[in-house]
Simulated assay, not measured.
Amino acid sequence: MSVLMEVARLDESGELTDAVAVSRARAGDLAAYEVLVARYTVPAHRAAVLLGAGDDADDVVQEALVKAYRQLSRYRGESGFRPWLLAIVANETRNLHRSRKRREGLVLRAATGGGPEADVPDPAYEAIAHERRAQLVEQLRRLADRDRDVLVCRFLLDLSEQETAAALGVAKGTVKSRTARALARLRELLPVGEVPGA
């Protein structure tokens, strides 16, 4: 059985939890790390895009996955592999911003998720939804980085407060206060009903 087939079999069967996969990867089992890569590449890519990596999101994710593999010995498992990886993605995205020496022009766009749906969506609904997403993304771009980052993690990536704290490298209480302030700032910029969690 090929490595890819073994990865798919283990991941689909649910036999390999993140903790077990990390443990096996630390011991040199590349197939176990491939399971983690298969599980978390899409969320990592979404995080990179939403945090402002734009067209460089693929490179950010690849670098983050390589760094995560090299740093598996540092992984303590307190908050789970996903938020730990997303913290690395966030750091890599910040590194990208610093290397560009500019913040203007970075594209923040929401990644679409999910597979094809059985029903064909109403075109009018899709147009309105697209317009609302574009407006939300535009207003998110106007927020300060710390406000945007916490809202992206909490509402677009659907991370818990604890996972957001791990991803951003701040205390859980800081996540709560930043979220409240960022939502208040976003409410000032958007029409009623357009703010996540409102």
Rank of each mutant, 00 (worst) to 15 (best):
A144M: 09
P116N: 11
A134G: 05
R154I: 00
D122T: 00
R133T: 09
R109W: 03
G113K: 01
T112A: 13
A134V: 03
R103C: 10
H130K: 09
K101E: 15
Q139G: 05
R98I: 13
V137C: 08
D149Y: 00
A124D: 10
R98C: 07
V150I: 04
L106P: 06
L136Y: 01
V120T: 04
R141M: 10
P121R: 03
L108K: 05
E131R: 01
R146N: 09
V150G: 04
A124Q: 10
E138A: 11
S99F: 14
L151G: 02
V150L: 05
G105C: 09
V150R: 06
L136M: 08
G113C: 08
R132E: 08
R142I: 06
A124K: 07
R103W: 14
R141L: 13
G114K: 02
V137Q: 11
R146W: 08
R148C: 03
L108P: 00
R132W: 03
A134P: 00
E117H: 11
R154W: 01
E131L: 09
L151R: 00
E131Y: 03
D147A: 10
G114H: 01
R98G: 13
R100Q: 15
G105Y: 01
K101Y: 12
P121T: 06
H130Y: 06
Y125M: 10
A111W: 01
A124R: 08
R142M: 04
A124H: 07
R141G: 15
R100V: 11
